[in-house]
């Protein structure tokens, strides 16, 4: 066996070897054995990712600096930004839990938007992009670890839990968070690793022939 024939592909979930078939845009190629989606073509995915990551980066600011909830009891009031849910646990001694909230609700989602912006900007404007491979690995390994939507459900549950004992007000931060979740969800839909790796490959080959 020498070389890798271009017409072969393998399923990443069950390792079935298949011949490559041509698929139309928006048509998925499904593994006949385990039914995993092997690849698909998305239209304008880089441009969409660029737009979404810019929107995500902008929304990230109000989502994190404005209060998500505020509470009033007996004239005392208290409001909360996302970061405080990690900080107050840290103060209470639950360091590991605080760290996980910090990672899953702030650091990972931010990092994902930055990486996505870098990837889509570099590919769209044909910049050099020395870190493209690392960025792709990072994004693919971070998938599933950004948990904004779960945090959001946590906020809703907290509201219901507290509504009988206190006056609660929803802050601008929560609306921004909701919008940010829409953006991050859409960008994970449009992120098509197959297509991006293929583009990275083409760029590399082109650079190799240019150098010659």
């Amino acid at each position: 066996m020498h070389g890798t024939p271009e017409q072969l592909i393998a399923c990443h979930e069950c390792d079935l070897l298949m011949t490559r078939v041509a698929n139309k845009p928006n048509e998925d190629v499904i593994c006949p054995r385990c039914h995993a989606r092997i690849f698909y073509t998305s239209i304008n995915s880089i441009e969409r990712l660029l737009a979404l990551s810019v929107a995500g980066l902008i929304l990230f600011i109000p989502a994190n600096i404005f209060p998500i909830l505020s509470l009033q009891v007996f004239g005392q009031s208290q409001s909360e930004i996302i970061l405080q849910s990690a900080l107050s646990l840290f103060d209470g001694g639950l360091v590991l839990v605080a760290l996980l909230i910090l990672l899953f609700a702030i650091v990972v989602p931010l990092f994902q938007q930055v990486i996505l912006f870098y990837i889509s900007f570099t590919l769209h404007y044909r910049r050099e992009g020395r870190l493209l491979r690392q960025a792709m690995h990072a994004y693919q390994h971070l998938r599933g670890w950004g948990m904004l939507e779960i945090f959001m459900l946590g906020v809703l549950i907290s509201i219901i839990k507290l509504k009988d004992i206190a006056d609660l007000h929803i802050g601008l931060g929560l609306y921004s968070l909701a919008a940010l979740i829409v953006v991050t969800t859409l960008s994970s839909v449009f992120f098509n690793p197959h297509q991006i790796w293929h583009q990275i490959d083409l760029r590399r080959q082109k650079r190799a022939t240019d150098d010659r």
């Binding site: 208290q78 849910s85 990690a86 646990l89 609700a105």
Partner: peptide, 12 residues
């Protein structure tokens, strides 16, 4: 997350 949110908010 619920614990984190409640602990941060209910500090009266």
């Amino acid at each position: 997350f619920v614990i984190g949110i409640l602990v941060a908010l209910v500090q009266l």
